[in-house]
Amino acid sequence: MRAITHLKLALALAGLLALANCDEALTPSTVLQPAPAPEPATNAYVPASAASEELARYYLRVENDLLTRGMLRTDGGGPDTPYDADDLARNFEQIAFVNEHSGRTGVSAGGQSEVKLTRWKKPIRIATEFGPTVPPETRAEDREKIEAYASRLARVTGHSIRSAKSDGNFIVVIAGTDDTDYAQQRLKTLIPNIPADRLALIGNLQRPYYCFVFTFAGSGDTNTITRAVAFIRSENSDLLRLSCIHEEIAQGLGLSNDSPTARPSIFNDDDEFALLTSHDEKLLSMLYDPRLTPGMSGEEARPVVRILARELMGQSL
């Protein structure tokens, strides 16, 4: 567990849940209703408060400290981070089929439990919302980065993923500490019947947590994601904010766990890598390969996972 880390929360209302870096388990039973056409948001730019500015300085110090220690790498790995097909298969199984904080029955002595393969079936449309204190130039830059990242994820997974101005089913909220009320009200509009404890996370985040994501599954198919919400603090410095975009959206696709053995990877709590790596692209490619299906157990998927890993690494079967 990292002292300074992302809060990664994956929640499916019918039972899917993964909350990283927290021993708490939340299992609400509310069934989401279809979202009506959202009303235009009033989020004209408002300068941030002194408290928000101080928080931004804090996250800049955090980023600088991590960079000084050789963390938050953006090179994607190299000769110092070798991995083979066996490593890739093992990492996939740990990230896709093990939940360290599910709170479910059958938890092992180490606090882990097995989960089923979970991913989206419908096309993913990523809609980005900004709090009033996010400057217009930052909004434009972040939208551009998210649009490019969505295109990359679509290419990697073969799944339909793109950014959208409205009618999104994957909502990314980038907002500051001054924007709590706005963000909560906006999510109530976009996702009717969103559980109150999910909204409360936005108002109760402590400094060590930069961002989080939670996902919703349909009532009739607990292993298929139908909606997701990622929340990212706008006070994050540039690289931390981009790191949050990469990690939370990727985890919202279905790889909600972390593994200390995954390297080079953002699916690891150590903050070594800031951005999605080629290793992570392979994990997402495996997740959305048609030879795997939602609801598979780790044992059922293992033979296929090993084949996929060897194919991706160019190793003989």
Rank of each mutant, 00 (worst) to 15 (best):
S102D: 13
H101Y: 09
V46N: 01
M296W: 02
D80K: 13
P260L: 08
V173F: 05
M286I: 13
L242A: 12
T81R: 14
I245P: 05
P82N: 07
G106L: 03
G168S: 06
F170R: 05
T177C: 06
R73L: 09
G111L: 08
E129T: 08
V31R: 14
V305G: 05
A89T: 02
A35G: 12
D258W: 14
L239W: 04
S219C: 00
S52P: 01
P47Y: 05
A154K: 11
Q94Y: 04
V31L: 04
A217Y: 02
P294I: 04
I245M: 13
D221A: 13
E93C: 12
F170D: 03
H159A: 15
A12V: 03
I146E: 01
L117H: 12
P264Y: 11
A25E: 07
Y182Q: 06
R263M: 13
A50C: 02
R125A: 09
R186M: 11
N99E: 12
R2V: 10
F92Y: 15
G254K: 08
W120V: 03
G111M: 10
I161P: 09
L66H: 03
F130R: 07
P47H: 05
E24N: 08
R119Y: 02
V62K: 04
S52I: 00
E114P: 00
N91K: 01
T133K: 07
R162L: 09
V31H: 10
R302P: 00
T180C: 07
E281C: 04
A175K: 08
E247K: 10
K188M: 15
M313R: 13
A154P: 07
P82E: 04
E53W: 00
L72R: 12
G158A: 07
R306G: 00
Q185K: 15
